[in-house]
C-alpha cells in the first residue's frame, strides 16, 4: 500500500491484527459464526461472574438440605439454580470447616468454574500463584492477608479441564438473622477460591 493521502495513521496492535486475521479465516471456512463469538464475549465480559457463586454459597449456608446436595452432587445442585454450561460440566464443592481450609488452583493453565465465578482474575492465572499455591500455600495465603491458625489444615485442589472446584467458605458468626441476599453480599470471589474468607458483617 503506497504511503499516500489514504493513510490515516490507524495502527493495529500486532496481536489485534493477528486475531482479526484468524477470525477472518475461520469465518470464511464456516468454522465459526461471528455472531456466536459476539455472544460469548458479551456473556463473559458482562453477564457471568462471582455473584452467581455467592448465591450458591448463601443458599448452602441457609438450607442444610441444599448443602448436603452440594456435597453429594455439586454439578446438579448448582445447575438447579440455573448456573450450568461451559466449564461447569463437572463441579465439586469443597467445604471449609474450623479445622480445614480449602484452596483452589490450576497448576497447568487456568481451569476455573466459569458458570459460578465468571473468568479468573489475573492473579489466578499468574505463574507465581499456579506454582506456589501447591508448594507453599500458607505463604501464599499470608500474601492475600489470610493468616490461618496452626491447627487449621490447608488442602489444595488442582483444577483440571474435567473437574472444577468451588470452595464453600464458613458462614461468619453473627449472621443468623440475615436474609439470603445479605448473606450473598458477604461472599467474595476470593472466599470461593480459598484465598480469602467470607466477610464479617460490620
Amino acid at each position: 500500500m503506497p504511503h499516500d493521502h489514504h493513510d490515516h495513521d490507524n495502527h493495529l496492535d500486532p496481536m489485534d491484527a493477528r486475531t482479526r486475521a484468524l477470525e477472518t479465516i475461520l469465518t470464511r471456512k464456516g468454522l465459526v459464526d461471528p455472531a456466536a463469538v459476539d455472544e460469548i464475549i458479551e456473556t463473559y465480559a458482562e453477564k457471568v461472574g462471582p455473584r452467581n457463586g455467592a448465591q450458591v454459597v448463601a443458599r448452602a449456608w441457609d438450607e442444610p438440605d441444599f448443602a448436603d446436595w452440594l456435597k453429594r452432587d455439586a454439578t446438579a445442585a448448582i445447575a438447579s439454580m440455573g448456573f450450568s454450561g461451559r466449564q461447569g460440566e463437572h463441579m465439586r464443592a469443597v467445604f471449609n470447616t474450623p479445622r480445614l481450609h480449602n484452596l483452589v488452583v490450576c497448576t497447568l493453565c487456568s481451569c476455573y468454574p466459569w458458570p459460578v465465578l465468571g473468568l479468573p482474575p489475573v492473579w489466578y492465572k499468574s505463574p507465581a500463584y499456579r506454582s506456589r499455591a501447591v508448594i507453599e500455600p500458607r505463604a501464599v495465603l499470608r500474601e492475600f492477608g489470610l493468616e490461618l491458625p496452626g491447627d487449621v489444615a490447608v488442602r489444595v485442589w488442582d483444577s483440571t479441564a474435567e473437574l472444577r472446584y468451588l470452595v464453600i467458605p464458613e458462614r461468619p458468626a453473627g449472621t443468623e438473622s440475615m436474609s439470603r441476599e445479605e448473606l450473598a453480599a458477604l461472599v467474595t470471589r476470593e472466599s470461593m477460591i480459598g484465598t480469602g474468607l467470607a466477610k464479617v458483617p460490620a
Binding site: T19, R20, A36, A45
Partner: peptide
Amino acid sequence: TPFTEPWQARIFALTVAL
C-alpha cells in the same frame, strides 16, 4: 474486567466457539 484489550476477548471467544 477479564479482558484489558478487545483482541483478548476475541481470541477467548473464538476458542470457546471452536
